[in-house]
Design a protein around this nucleic acid. Structure first.
Length: 320
DNA sequence: TGGAAGTCAATAGT
DNA sequence: ACTATTGACTTCCA
């Protein structure tokens, strides 16, 4: 029910207003009152569009309310606008309450279905290689990547965000499993790809699951390459569920406890002089085991063009 | 301001 | 029809 998501939405008045001008033949109450938010398409969207076109005051909700924000996000996600001034900007404008639905252009703004960007295999490969080079690319690098791949900058940014997030999530699951099964040595993690397509790209992560940037790798490596790095193999049983992980506080607590455990162990190892015996010849595929928070900050400068390779990979940390 | 975390939804795969 | 994947988005935080 919409009410579950937007309890303050005045569906009755919406129905009344829309019906009163006979904009839609279909039952508006069906559109707004009996369907979950996710099922508003196409009726819900049409209703919004119709209302927008005819300048109907549609939503009697606070502009900053969750309903308003959710509606805006919903529309923004699912529609684009051919108006000169986006419909979205107008929908939630107005005084704090009684937000009016308006349309900027004569003839009515038309909400069009926004096509989903589907990255091609070559683009994904290039992005992954760029990620291996620099998990935290600078804005300049992102721009260059976007240009080279003919993508929007926001798409590249989103891709890196999502990619890091999903790698972290999978890592977390593996660490939880490792903790219970004693299989892996957390903190010394070379995570494979994080996607179904290529699970072995060899990304180096820090103790919190954050991949190091290229610079960080150079600056903070050479410390524990003598250790045996654990290559996680993402199990088919856990990976799919990763996208639907519970997000409750217990999970956070588990993660925090796990990370504390990792840090504690690493510090003990360091105190025991493990680092003295480390091989310093390896490159940034291996990460420092005791990175300071500062060292974990993303680099702020660009190292130039991302090194995109068309085939094969000599990128560091890549699994054979 | 940028990153993490969480969420939504389009699309592909089964 | 259902599920998994993944691009895009939001909020929160340092």
């Amino acid at each position: 029910m919409v009410a579950m998501y937007a309890p303050e939405l005045d569906t009755y008045s919406i129905t009344k207003k829309v019906r009163s001008v006979r904009l839609v033949r279909r039952s508006v109450s069906t559109c707004w009152r009996c369907l979950p938010w996710s099922k508003l398409e196409p009726e819900g969207a049409r209703t919004v569009r119709d209302a927008a076109i005819h300048r109907i005051s549609l939503f009697n909700v606070d502009k900053g309310s969750r309903t308003a924000r959710r509606l805006k996000a919903y529309l923004k996600r699912r529609h684009s606008c051919v108006s000169e001034r986006p419909v979205l900007d107008g929908i939630l404008r107005g005084p704090d309450r009684a937000v009016a639905v308006t349309v900027a252009t004569p003839g009515g703004g038309v909400l069009l279905k926004r096509p989903r960007v589907v990255l091609g295999a070559a683009e994904k490969e290039a992005l992954k290689r760029a990620y291996q080079e620099r998990p935290y690319p600078s804005p300049k690098t992102i721009e260059q990547l976007a240009n080279q791949l003919n993508l929007k900058i926001s798409t590249v940014i989103n891709w890196f965000h999502n990619y890091r997030s999903r790698i972290r999530r999978e890592l977390f699951i593996e660490e939880i499993q490792a903790d219970s099964g004693g299989r892996a040595k957390p903190g010394e993690v070379v995570v494979c790809d994080g996607t179904k397509e290529n699970r072995c790209a060899g990304t180096v992560l820090d103790q919190s699951g954050r991949p190091l940037s290229e610079e960080e790798g150079h600056e903070h490596t050479h410390t524990h390459s003598g250790r045996s790095l654990e290559f996680f193999s993402f199990s088919e049983t856990t990976a799919p569920s990763a996208a639907r992980l519970p997000s409750d506080s217990s999970l956070r607590k588990m993660k925090a406890a796990n990370l504390n455990n990792i840090i504690h162990r690493l510090e003990k190892e360091k105190a025991a002089g493990h680092e003295d015996s480390l091989d310093h010849t390896h490159t940034h595929t291996h990460t420092h085991t005791h990175l300071t928070p500062k060292a974990l900050q993303p680099c702020s400068h660009s190292s130039g063009k991302p090194k995109l390779r068309s085939s094969g990979s000599s990128a560091p940390g890549v699994c054979p």
